[in-house]
Amino acid sequence: MSERTPKVIFENVSKSFDVKGDKLEVLESIDLTVGEGELVCLLGPSGCGKSTLLNIAGGFEQPSSGTIKIDGELITAPDPRRVFVFQEYGIFPWASVWDNVVLGLRHLSKDKQYEIASEIIDLVGLSGFEKTYPMALSGGMKQRVEVARALAVSPDVLYMDEPFGALDSLTRLTMRSELIRIWKDRKPTILFVTHDVDEAIQLAERVVVFTGRPGSIAGVIPIDLEHPRDLGSAQYGVIKNKLYELLGVSHLI
């Protein structure tokens, strides 16, 4: 990890909201450096501010204090070089799969659009569905469209906010291995928010564990296992124990 060029740098990021005159602290002095091409999972209980941190990184919200820099550049607004993948389907239901995927390519020539979009649609396994509208697709396929729309612009960074949270558990497993395949193919930097311990261990090179509100970093666990990872291996169990410990919950129930 240490030899990687730093890509995303969070420096002392805090965030609070005003709720009916009271100050609600959501994030407390987050310091984190994510390397270029790294896949990092932000793991924590609901309401710990991990999604807020992602929204700040995406430029949708401003930190109350602290800074986020990508390639040394201060983040103040959303940018197509860094694309967000939402849990609740950010793709446009009024547009076909094809029109969704070419959204970020609209300034390119038709030929170029065709070349990139057909390659990406093939990569996410949606060939043959180009003219279909999202309403007719399953949840997993909708998320594939959203990932394709994001990848089409060749972003440096992908922000994924519990992207598979709304899917059934089997589809979720498939989508995780697909994500790993695509990540290895394209090598974007990925910040992946989840509250699912297994998901974090299956995906991440490093897991950043958050405490409850106000969210701060409880610890960072590197996972030096090759993909595909063996869910039944001894190391897997050890890492899982460590994560549960950091989260402050017992895995023995």
Binding site: F60, A77, P78, F86, G90
Partner: peptide, 25 residues
């Protein structure tokens, strides 16, 4: 909000924003 943010993420503004997002949504 996710559709608004998707539009922001892909830097849609002005007439294009209305034609491609606000109106169809």
């Amino acid at each position: 909000l996710v559709h608004q943010r998707s539009a922001m993420n892909f830097q849609m503004t002005g007439l294009e924003l209305f034609r491609r997002v606000v109106f169809p949504a």
